[in-house]
């Protein structure tokens, strides 16, 4: 009986691995700890679809949140000798990328961050996203009003957004930034933002004394919205904008309240662009642009995919 079960186990192995025979088509490994996150899923699926069209072998390796394991799996695919590696993780946390470079295997970033080891990183442009939402605020206020800003300078990708919005508000003579707030983000950013906004509302009691809230990401915008609604001041026409267009923000935008706009990153587009960059590399082209930006979309009630009312 034991012998039989051993034989069955070996047969099972053979069946499972039978289809994995090596072929001549380029083999690309995608390594990420974040496949459970919707953004990453969209990117990886788009990449797989593009790769299937081109006839590549793609193996997607998801370490399920385990960042140290990403490093080990990068080592493995380097040893395996894949033709390219796609990462969706901060390259500074993956020292094994140096081994890929040493082995002459190109590394492509899928919204991963830039590093010398990464040949091309495809991502969204934080400067651009901040410019679009800050401009939206200026336009909605016809260039005049008092704005509360929520930013977070310790985190570089968010700091980038704040600096651009400040420049745009600063370049509009009749816009006054009355506060720049860095909320405590350990609670996810909503609760502290709400508390801080409540304090600002209390300090500015006259209707119309606050015209807009610009937030560098969605959570503070949601916190500000809660504060405004809790204070019963949702009728004053305070315009709120966020960035990322997360599901909660979309819901708020669809509800038609003060939260008017956010920015959606084109994750599907990022996945496709990564495939395009790899194709150019494999064709022998020298890639000079270390970062490629995918276009983003301003989301308002007009174009948000709201559930039918």
């Amino acid at each position: 009986m034991l012998r039989r079960s051993l034989i069955i186990a070996v047969l099972l192995f053979a069946v499972v691995f039978g289809g994995a025979a090596a072929q001549d088509a380029p083999t690309i490994a995608v390594v990420t700890p974040y496949l459970a996150q919707p953004g990453t899923q969209f990117m990886v699926e788009a990449f797989q679809a593009a790769a299937a069209e081109k006839g590549w072998n793609v193996s997607v390796i998801d370490t399920a949140g385990d960042v140290p394991a990403v490093n080990a799996r990068i080592q493995d695919v380097v040893t395996q000798g894949v033709d390219a590696i796609v990462i969706n993780v901060d390259p500074s946390q993956a020292p094994a990328l140096a081994e890929a470079v040493e082995a002459g295997i190109p590394v492509f970033g899928m919204d991963a961050g830039s590093a010398p080891e990464v040949l091309v990183n495809v991502t969204s442009n934080g400067y651009e996203m901040a410019a679009v939402t800050a401009t939206y605020v200026v336009d909605r206020l016809n260039g005049a009003g008092r704005v509360v800003m929520f930013g977070f300078n310790p985190y570089p990708p968010v700091q980038k957004r704040g600096v651009i919005a400040e420049a745009i508000f600063g370049n509009t003579p009749d816009i006054e930034v009355i506060e720049f707030i860095e909320p405590d983000v350990t609670d996810g950013g909503i609760a502290d933002s709400r508390a801080r906004m409540e304090a600002i509302l209390a300090a500015n009691p006259e209707p119309g004394s606050i015209s807009a809230v610009w937030a560098a990401w969605d959570q503070p915008a949601l916190g500000a919205l809660q504060a405004i609604e809790a204070a019963g001041r949702e009728g004053e026409g305070i315009v709120i904008t966020g960035i990322d267009a997360n599901p909660q923000a979309l819901e708020a935008i669809c509800a038609g309240g003060n939260f008017e706009a956010s920015i959606a990153q084109d994750f599907t587009g990022i996945g496709g662009l990564v495939a395009e960059q790899i194709e150019r590399y494999l064709a022998g082209e020298t890639l000079t642009q270390a970062v490629v930006y995918a276009p983003t979309t301003l989301i308002t009630a007009a174009n948000a995919a709201c559930p039918a009312q």
Binding site: V16, F17, N57, D62, A64, A72, R73, V77
Partner: peptide, 18 residues
């Protein structure tokens, strides 16, 4: 197992089951 499965190209979810 983790190293070999990755090199052979077994789907990560199947890897965990195996």
């Amino acid at each position: 197992l983790a190293n070999g499965f990755t090199q052979v190209g077994v789907d990560t979810y199947v890897q965990r089951i195996l």
